[in-house]
């Protein structure tokens, strides 16, 4: 036997391995950023506008647009917004016209626009089975405000998913109509949460409520998941067929079963919520 050492195993650089494994939330978007594309990416739940590979605007039916956020609380009169959009052209975006007209400070516009952009992008980048479509050369009437890097937007979107998950690990309340539930020992609510809670009527969804209040949808999802975690709100169950009643094995009287089903004992409601959360994992 000749003592040749065995060939060295190939060793991969760890950093490059993570880079390769990271296809991004949308491989198409990552590719468009790399080629510094300009145009619009239409995905199942929203639209991203790119200029030279940077995200300049985002829209989603699930998120209130910049116009809604700016007009809901009287920052801008709706006519002012409409006028700026109508007068905008390839050279002067609506954003530029609003600033030049002295209707908004650059800081306020940037702040509100970035909020709206990340908000809409959270939904636009939601997992989807349908492929996105990209149309080159299309620009938004708003014009540039503060462009955001694709990688930063994807990182933030993932962080937001984790944030919601940590508050309450079930995404059903994000889309279902919400109804109020009554919990004993609920925490004291903030004014924002109380305003939201007052509007929950069994038909409205979280994003619908956000639109109505002129709030960012993601912010509203955070509030809704907190309210669900506190036992004050629940997604309304879809209309179910007549439930089949199985007598619980350890209860001897119908009265006891009844009592268990409608208990307000904080320990039991906590256990029920815990069970729901575990099942949702």
């Amino acid at each position: 036997m000749v003592g040749t050492p065995p060939p060295r195993l190939p060793v991969r650089d760890r950093a490059s391995a993570t880079e390769r494994a990271w296809g991004g939330l949308s491989p198409m978007l990552t590719r468009l950023a790399a080629e510094r594309a300009t145009g619009v990416l239409v995905r199942a739940r929203g639209t991203l506008y790119l200029a030279e590979g940077m995200v300049v605007h985002a829209e989603s039916p699930a998120a209130a647009g910049l116009d809604a956020l700016l007009t809901a609380h009287g920052t801008l009169a709706p006519e002012v917004w409409q006028d700026a959009v109508a007068r905008s052209d390839g050279r002067h975006g609506a954003a530029r016209l609003l600033l030049d007209g002295g209707h908004l400070s650059p800081g306020a516009l940037q702040l509100c626009h970035l909020g709206a952009l990340y908000d809409a992008a959270y939904f636009a980048l939601a997992p989807s089975s349908a492929p996105g479509r990209f149309r080159y050369g299309v620009a938004h009437r708003l014009g540039p405000v503060l462009p955001v890097q694709v990688a930063a937007l994807e990182r933030e979107t993932l962080r937001r998913r984790d944030l919601l998950d940590r508050i309450w690990p079930d995404a059903t309340p994000d889309e279902a109509p919400l109804e109020r539930t009554y919990a004993s020992g609920a925490p004291k609510l903030t004014t924002r949460q109380q305003t939201l809670l007052d509007r929950i009527d069994g038909t409205r969804t979280a994003t619908g409520l956000a639109h109505g209040l002129g709030r960012q949808s993601f912010h509203t999802l955070v509030d809704v998941r907190r309210l669900v975690a506190a036992g004050l709100v629940a997604p309304r169950a879809p209309a179910a067929p007549e439930p089949v009643v199985h007598p619980p094995p350890h209860t001897h009287t119908p009265a006891a079963a009844e009592q268990l089903a409608y208990t307000t004992d904080p320990h039991i409601t906590l256990l029920k919520r815990l069970r729901d959360a575990l099942e949702a994992l």
């Binding site: 956020l69 700016l70 609380h73 306020a108 702040l111 509100c112 909020g115 002129g214 960012q216 912010h219």
Partner: peptide, 10 residues
């Protein structure tokens, strides 16, 4: 804390 006329938390 920054007070804005539109809804925000910055």
């Amino acid at each position: 804390f920054v007070d804005t006329s539109f809804d925000s938390s910055v």
